[in-house]
């Protein structure tokens, strides 16, 4: 099975460590990659994630050295291989204009303000991963334990049995 990756982009090492720590419970099923700049994140997507699996969720800061988070998310949206990835902005400071741009051009799914509540961050990531899995995968059972079990179970029930139709 090709793994579905979570990618975190944050330039402050201590903050990145906290995000990674908070999302560790998902790693059982969803390997996590971390990058400190948009350029590095692009490299990770190209050289690590896409050769092995898919990009499921991106948690990205906006204010980064060099290219900013929103323009990185837009670039992901424009690439057919990563367009379906769910994009989350985790930031202390994205102006209204940048956020609107992310909404319109990168299909931003969620905006989490710093400092964040870890439970809330996990809930957001869990929902987005669930959406991604339901949309992109056909076998949902392996994810029941880490994702929104109710929604996955409901979806499994609605599936036509092999004998139907």
């Amino acid at each position: 099975m090709n793994p579905i990756y979570i990618l975190c982009v944050e330039d402050e090492p201590e903050v990145l460590a906290a995000v990674v720590r908070d999302l560790a419970p998902f790693e059982e099923k969803f390997p996590l990659e971390a990058a400190s700049t948009a350029a590095e994140a692009r490299r990770v997507v190209r050289e690590v994630i896409l050769p092995r699996g898919k990009l499921g969720v991106v948690v990205c800061d906006h204010v980064l050295p060099g290219e900013d988070g929103v323009s990185f998310l837009i670039a992901l949206q424009q690439d057919p291989r990563t367009a379906s990835a769910r994009k989350i902005l985790l930031t202390a400071q994205a102006g209204l204009a940048a956020t609107v741009e992310a909404l319109n051009r990168a299909e931003l799914k969620h905006y989490v303000a710093k400092p964040w509540n870890p439970e809330e961050l996990r809930a957001v990531v869990r929902r987005q991963l669930t959406d991604f899995v339901l949309e992109q995968e056909t076998d949902w059972c392996p994810y029941l334990t880490v994702l929104e079990a109710d929604r996955i179970a409901e979806k499994i029930r609605q599936q036509p049995l092999p004998g139907d139709g």
């Binding site: 402050e12 201590e14 903050v15 460590a17 906290a18 720590r21 908070d22 204010v63 202390a92 400071q93 710093k114 400092p115 964040w116 870890p118």
Partner: peptide, 21 residues
């Protein structure tokens, strides 16, 4: 103010998250 909010949010976040962990 926006700058300070941004600059202070990162250490506050890592402080709070480290204390939790």
């Amino acid at each position: 103010t926006a700058g300070i909010a941004h600059e202070i949010n990162n250490p506050v976040a890592s402080l709070a998250r480290a204390a939790d962990a």
